[in-house]
Structures are given as structure tokens and as C-alpha cells.
């Protein structure tokens, strides 16, 4: 540590040698202890500026700002999300079409095998049950 370098350190970092770069701290302290008068004026100057900085109040975030910062952070993944379907599954439309096709195919296969007569009887029975009377008999009564 040279005297010139110590004057520089005082000018750059102020009067407190603990604020100096770690690698130069011990050398600076030793020189200051050996020649206190030589650096007294520079230290007094630096101390006055350090004191001015010390008067500045701390700048702290308001509660509202802190809350806003926390609210803007990533949200935790909710429990069970791993097995839940995503909002859009690329394969979903394809499966819908497959189900529609299967339904149409089954309908076409079954329709020709159904007997027309038995269908008519079934419909007749259902109508009678729903209306509370036999519409076929009524039709016969009205007919001339």
C-alpha cells in the first residue's frame, strides 16, 4: 500500500477503511495507523461527505408495492393438476369425430334388422300409455 493509493481509496470509498476493497483493507489500516497526521485532512473531508450520506433516509417499499410484487409472481400448481385434462386437448376433436362415425355405423347396421310391424305395435302401446286412451280406436270411431 502506497500513500498515493491510500489517498485514492479515501477519495473513492470514504473515511472508513472497512469500506475499502478487502484486498487493500489491511494495508490501508496499517498505513493509517503509522501516519495518522498525514491523512487527517483527507479523512476529515471524506468523513464530512460520509456523514451527509448517512443523513439520507432509507427508502422502503410500501405495503401496497410489496403486495403487488408478490401478486405478480408465479402461482403454485394446484393439487391434482397433473392428471386433469388440459383446457385444450389436440386429440379431443378427433375423438369426437370417431364417436360420431361409430354411432352412424351402428345405426345403419341395426336399422334394417328391425321389423316394421313390431315397431308399429311398440309405438301404439307407447301412445296409449302416454295419452290414456287408444288413438287408433278413436280414429275408427270418427271415421265414417
Amino acid at each position: 500500500m502506497t500513500e498515493d493509493r491510500l489517498f485514492e481509496l479515501i477519495e473513492i470509498w470514504g473515511a472508513d477503511p472497512d469500506a475499502y476493497p478487502e484486498s487493500e483493507r489491511a494495508g490501508a489500516k496499517a498505513l493509517l495507523a503509522a501516519y495518522p497526521q498525514r491523512f487527517a485532512a483527507a479523512l476529515a473531508d471524506a468523513r464530512a461527505l460520509d456523514a451527509a450520506f448517512a443523513q439520507l433516509p432509507d427508502i422502503l417499499p410500501s405495503a401496497a408495492l410489496t403486495e403487488a410484487l408478490i401478486a405478480s409472481a408465479p402461482k403454485p400448481a394446484s393439487a391434482g393438476a397433473a392428471w386433469r385434462l388440459p383446457k385444450f386437448a389436440p386429440w379431443a376433436p378427433a375423438s369426437g369425430f370417431a364417436a360420431l362415425a361409430a354411432g352412424l355405423f351402428m345405426g345403419l347396421m341395426i336399422a334394417p334388422t328391425a321389423s316394421a310391424a313390431s315397431d308399429t305395435d311398440d309405438v301404439q302401446a307407447l301412445l296409449e300409455q302416454a295419452l290414456g286412451y287408444d288413438p287408433a280406436a278413436l280414429t275408427e270411431e270418427i271415421a265414417p
Partner: peptide, 23 residues
């Protein structure tokens, strides 16, 4: 932990670093 959404880790990062950034 904050990247995974851990609220305690998020709060800790905010409390530790927001004063310096704001100042």
C-alpha cells in the same frame, strides 16, 4: 421454489431484494 410458485420463497425474494431495487 419461487419458480414453482412457492409463496414463502416468493415473499422472501421480494422482502430481501425489493428495498434495494426501489432505492
Amino acid at each position: 421454489r419461487a419458480a414453482a410458485g412457492d409463496p414463502a420463497a416468493v415473499q422472501s425474494l421480494v422482502h430481501r431484494y425489493s428495498p434495494g431495487v426501489l432505492a
